[in-house]
Design a protein around this nucleic acid. Sequence first.
DNA 1: ATAAGACATGCAATCGTTTCCGTAGTTTAG
DNA 2: CTAAACTACGGAAACGATTGCATGTCTTAT
Lengths: 341, 341
Amino acid sequence: MSTGVNLKELAAELKLSPSTVSRALNDSYEISEATKKKVISMAEKLNYQPNPFARSLRENKSKTIAVVIPERMSSFFSKVVDGIEEITQQFGYHLLVYSTHEDVDREKKIVNLLMNGRADAIIMSVSSQTSDISHLTRLHERGFPLVFFDRICSDIPTTKFITNDYESGFEGTKHLIQQGCRKIAFLMLSKELSITKDRYRGYLDALKQAGLSPEPQLNITCCQDEEQNIEAIKQLLTGPNRPDGILSSVEKLALATYHAVKRTHLRIPEDIKIISFFSNLSIASLLNPSLTTITQPAFTIGEECAKLLMKKLTKPRQPDLPNQLITIPSKITIRSSTIVL
Amino acid sequence: MSTGVNLKELAAELKLSPSTVSRALNDSYEISEATKKKVISMAEKLNYQPNPFARSLRENKSKTIAVVIPERMSSFFSKVVDGIEEITQQFGYHLLVYSTHEDVDREKKIVNLLMNGRADAIIMSVSSQTSDISHLTRLHERGFPLVFFDRICSDIPTTKFITNDYESGFEGTKHLIQQGCRKIAFLMLSKELSITKDRYRGYLDALKQAGLSPEPQLNITCCQDEEQNIEAIKQLLTGPNRPDGILSSVEKLALATYHAVKRTHLRIPEDIKIISFFSNLSIASLLNPSLTTITQPAFTIGEECAKLLMKKLTKPRQPDLPNQLITIPSKITIRSSTIVL
DNA sequence: ATAAGACATGCAATCGTTTCCGTAGTTTAG
DNA sequence: CTAAACTACGGAAACGATTGCATGTCTTAT
């Protein structure tokens, strides 16, 4: 297959020993400048590419990071991965990307496969079904570098990158209240998710501050089937206890809401106002009416995850990843879905 | 780091030689059922995980496929990768995913890095700036398994998976003509792209069939900057030679068109009709008005690429990938952007 | 003139598998 | 009863890189 020259052949060509050539290519002080030059030029000429597996085996590192996300069709996760790649690529690291499809069993399989050292670290956001986290604690206890972002596991003492979920939930709700909403629904993927909990706390506190009481019927837990979600939201909108505002905690549920509204006679924002965590600004402004968004700094989150790991992995004796929660704020952009002109 | 037991330790524990243990785990006929059972249960007990690099080094295969796409924030490419993963995962293969960000220099770097055997094969869609394909021919000439999809290199004799670009371009244009369009613009990313050429041919032939003559000013080549694209399209829409129909050859340009239209007084579909290659059905039907789409079978394309490769890579003596163009048809879904009620 | 140090290079072990080859012990054929 | 053929396993080489140690040559100081 990839039958380029190897170190031994290169050395033979140069009439040097493999060790000398290796050292020359790795710029060792033990090798004279003259031989280094010769070696390097010959390596270029023969297009020598070191075998990554031989190297990985010897050095016990793969120069590979695994990224585990719940889904690919999401502008948030796409941007995070872009951010990660932007940094890791500069360090010559490669990215194994896995999607769990929000399925905890797939997540477990993936994580277990990763324990054999194929990757030097994992950056992940857990699936919405993940409640048993034994697969993750095991990984972490073995000293495997693990970084969470967005949907984190608080119980695992490592570094996590999130946005200001609580504040954003609070401010988003407050904004709806300021626009006159009194009955605000909260849309979520799963009650277990860290982002759900934090955003929901913000939502509750904003209600409380405004003297509004939360109503359990206004909380909708959605599933993986878009059609089902749309129908559930439609039921809510056409039911006896119709909300006048909606805070959607994830992108896809905002889209489901727009679909649901289309199936009713309701108007946005006159009858129902909508705000959502949302990362695709282009789409947000194209929706009809344009969607008021809480924009997460997806790309930056990815970059920060990667920067931290690169620091740990490329420098010699680095400490374990600290048990730390790093918050990068979101930005609320008010558009037409919450403003009656 | 990932300090599990290795084969030698496992063998010592069992008082067997490493070779026997290896054979037992690989279900060799040379090993008695009794020892196989013992070995397997001990391996389970000690949670033995073979070192992937040692194995890769020895077997000269990595059980890894590289996927190279122009961008991650695209429902088409996301779905293709999902399709690929669906298949490869069943065979225990891993996915290295790279984005070129439509940059041919990044593409070259990635491809060159991949030549060292880190992956057993590459599945790719070339960047819009790729005209010099020497990096790809070199790869292919070395016998590296290479599969193209969507944006292909016709000059490289390997298997390529596309949709029926010509027919879809033809039918899409024909649909616009049937709806009364006489001046139809064609939006593309780059003239060099295979998809542009084929879809454009379909467009031209449909015009010809209807007795319409193509106008060069109605072809817009877009760039990577969304704002610039929007302005260019707006110029077209507000200029003296305004089209009454638009065929967009890629998803992102349909969105840019909607943005552009929003900046004018024009109405869709009354003043301007729009049809686009588009993979995000949920978004297409939410746009205002909903977008008539040519939906590419993204997931299936990914699956087919992966199936072909799995067949080649997992069976013993497989021939080279045939020089073959496999077409999986798109489906046109008519929505409001082309229909005046 | 000789010992000591610096410099440049080679030998061989190592990483963890797989697999070729060899060899005891047992069964089968002639 | 002996030769041939199996069966079940062990020893050791190989994959391709890195690196500790050894070695040889050349300066330089005493």
